[in-house]
Every structure is written in C-alpha cells, then in structure tokens.
Amino acid sequence: MFKPTGGGAERYSIAMVEQLAARHDIHVFAQQIEHQWPGVTYHPIPWPFDKPRWINQLWFALATWWQTRRGFDVVHSHENTWHGQVQTVHVVPVKHSLLQGRTGWRLALRWLKIVTSPRLVAYLCLEHFRYKPQADRCVVLASDSLKPVMAQAYPASVPTLQVVTPGVVSVPGVVAADQKAAARVSLGLPAQGRCILFVGNDYRKKGLETLLAVLPQLPADCFVAVVGNAAQIAGFQHAVDAGGMRGRVFFLGALRTVDDAYRAADCLAHPTLEDTFAMVVLEAMAHGLPVVVSSAQYCGISGLLAHETNALIVNQPRDATELAQELQRLLADVALANTLSDNGLRFAQQHLWSEQALHQETIYQTVVSGR
C-alpha cells in the first residue's frame, strides 16, 4: 500500500518519494494508493487475490516485474519481490524468523513445516531471489540493527548492504500551550491532565498490553491516547473496561497525519516487542516529546540513543514494573523531562529526510554507474 495511514515502511517510502520527486521522474506502483504529489506518476496494481496473502504477494511481484522490466533507470522495491536493483528492507527476513537459533531435530521439524507449506515456500523463494547478489543490486536497510540479522540469514548479501534510516521532514519543536489545547480539542482528548501517547498499527507487537497494565500505577491525571489501526480497538476495549480504565484510554484510530497527536501529548511510550527502527520515536522527538522506548534488542532506533540523555530505555518491554518505574520517573522529574526533550530535538535535527534522500540518490547513482 502507498498511503500515510499505513505502517512505518509505507510512511518511509512516501517520505522518500516526496523528497526525490523534485529532482527525478518518480513512478509509484502499489495496490492501494492514497497519495498525490507533484511530479509523481501513480500506477495502481489490481488486487484480485485479497486472501490468501501469499498468492497476492506473488501476483504483485509478477505484475510489477512485467510493468517495470523496461523504461526505468532504477527499480526500487520496498516489497518482497525478485526484481529491483534497489531493495529496501524494513522487517526481519522470514528466513531469520523461521530458522534462527534452531538446531538438530528442532531445525528438521521446522524445515518439514516449511516444505509442506506453499505459503512459507513462496515467501522464502521470493526472499532468496530478492537478496541474491547481482552486479547492479543494492540492499538498503532501514536500521543498523538489521545488519547482523541479514548477515546471518543471507551472508552473501553482506557486500550489497547499505543503511538509510528514516528521517523527519522538519523539527517543529515543543508546542505552545494554546497549540496543545487546540490539538486536544481536535482529537477529543481531555483538556486537563498528562497525555501519554502510543502509536502503532499492531497494538500487541508495539506493547500496548504492557502500557495498559502500567496505567493504574501512574498518577490519576495521566491518560493514554492510542493512534493506529482501528480494527484492533475492539480487542483492547474489553481490557480497558475490565481494568476500570474507561475515561483514561482514548482510541483515536488511524490518523492521516500524527502531528496533532504529537502536539497533544506530554510524552511517548513505545514499549515495542519488535521494531527495526521505530519512526514514531524519531517523530515524537522532533515535536519535543520525551520518550520511553524498548532497548536496542527490540527497537532499532535505541541503538542510536543514550539512556537518560535523549530517551529512557527499558531493557525488557514486557516487564510492567520496569516500564512503570521509567514512566513514573519521567512524570515526576521535570528536569529529566526537559533534558530528554532538548536532546531529543538535537537528535531529530540530525535525521532529516532531506539528508537521507541525498544518501538514497547516491545509491541510485552507484547502481546506474555500475551497470
């Protein structure tokens, strides 16, 4: 998909297109397109196979290969396809997820599961050809944390690896009180109290369960605003009601732009269980929000952060006690919150999309000259 309400990978690709469109002839191929930008040509790909997803993935790969096999200087794919000189990786490879750490009979059983599953065979075959070294191929990683993962799963791809992390368009900084009040009104949030922001389309993977478990331990004036996939709200609303947290948790659904949510919030909690980078953390920093985030084992951006300098980092995101302690510290210590905010703004200023786009252009030029 190519729409702002998608996940981090979608917003990454959109931001890169917007940066490059002024200097290049950009064509976008996607099945769901909700985006318009000057200088960009859009090519909707039919979606005949809603389910099973793996058949649709094969169809998309075939359809885009056919339409891009000639007439383009560089084909850049953010999807699991076998074609494209530039392949950007946003998630842990399927091969790593399936096989990492398995030996002996456990490894044999896993391979038995794979060879008897057309879905897994399809994904692994696509992935194999996607990362197969070619003279004009470059594999771009969204974070440094993916380097050892790719080296383990696809060692032959190592010479082709480059890192282009996400960025922000600008660094708006801390909002004034009247702007915060207006943002809360627009989102239907309480005018008073301290707002802890949670952003993620996969509530469970991004750690909402742990955050909700922590909320009763926080001061009574604290509430949580949840931004992301509205289809998951029903599954968590019961836990909110059962825990007596009605009136302290506000589900906002998927927002076309998260800017108002950042303006309305006092901090960001991101106890994610798996994020190769976590653009939301960087975006929150650009708005001057102090952040509490999982360690680098779980969240790629944390490998670039320093505990108590530009973020509070929790070692185990499933540990409600640890998360509660860090949030309580943040909420109680104004000086700490201001330090994290100031240093977070400096960190965001060093990760602008305009600079990341220049890096991406260099990769395109290398691919073309190498050909």
Rank of each mutant, 00 (worst) to 15 (best):
residue 250 F to L: 01
residue 115 V to R: 01
residue 367 V to E: 08
residue 114 I to K: 09
residue 162 Q to F: 09
residue 348 A to N: 07
residue 3 K to E: 06
residue 146 L to C: 10
residue 281 V to A: 00
residue 322 E to W: 08
residue 101 G to T: 14
residue 311 A to H: 04
residue 255 L to E: 06
residue 345 L to D: 14
residue 334 V to A: 15
residue 290 P to I: 04
residue 126 L to F: 13
residue 214 V to F: 00
residue 100 Q to S: 09
residue 213 A to M: 11
residue 43 H to N: 11
residue 53 R to D: 15
residue 218 L to F: 05
residue 287 H to V: 00
residue 19 Q to G: 00
residue 151 A to R: 11
residue 103 T to V: 02
residue 199 V to S: 03
residue 57 Q to C: 10
residue 210 T to A: 09
residue 88 T to W: 08
residue 196 I to M: 07
residue 241 D to W: 07
residue 68 T to I: 01
residue 303 G to L: 14
residue 13 S to T: 14
residue 96 H to D: 12
residue 95 K to R: 15
residue 271 P to V: 05
residue 136 D to R: 12
residue 5 T to I: 15
residue 265 A to L: 07
residue 66 W to V: 10
residue 272 T to N: 02
residue 114 I to P: 00
residue 225 A to V: 08
residue 210 T to E: 06
residue 102 R to G: 08
residue 22 A to Q: 04
residue 251 F to W: 05
residue 199 V to W: 04
residue 97 S to D: 15
residue 309 T to P: 03
residue 268 L to G: 02
residue 175 V to L: 10
residue 330 L to I: 11
residue 20 L to E: 10
residue 127 E to H: 04
residue 84 G to A: 05
residue 198 F to E: 11
residue 232 Q to V: 11
residue 341 S to V: 01
residue 32 Q to N: 12
residue 99 L to S: 09
residue 129 F to H: 12
residue 70 R to G: 13
residue 16 M to H: 04
residue 17 V to M: 08
residue 110 R to P: 00
residue 116 T to W: 09
residue 354 S to E: 13
residue 203 Y to W: 13
residue 120 L to P: 03
residue 171 V to L: 03
residue 154 Y to A: 06
residue 32 Q to R: 15
residue 34 E to H: 15
residue 153 A to C: 03
residue 196 I to G: 01
residue 7 G to L: 11
residue 223 F to R: 04
residue 322 E to S: 01
residue 247 G to W: 08
residue 83 H to M: 00
residue 97 S to P: 01
residue 6 G to A: 15
residue 54 W to Q: 01
residue 160 T to A: 15
residue 294 S to P: 10
residue 137 R to N: 12
residue 287 H to W: 06
residue 216 P to Y: 06
residue 186 S to F: 12
residue 48 P to I: 10
residue 130 R to K: 14
residue 248 R to C: 05
residue 369 S to R: 07
residue 24 H to S: 01
residue 164 V to G: 05
residue 111 W to S: 01
residue 242 A to R: 05
residue 21 A to I: 02
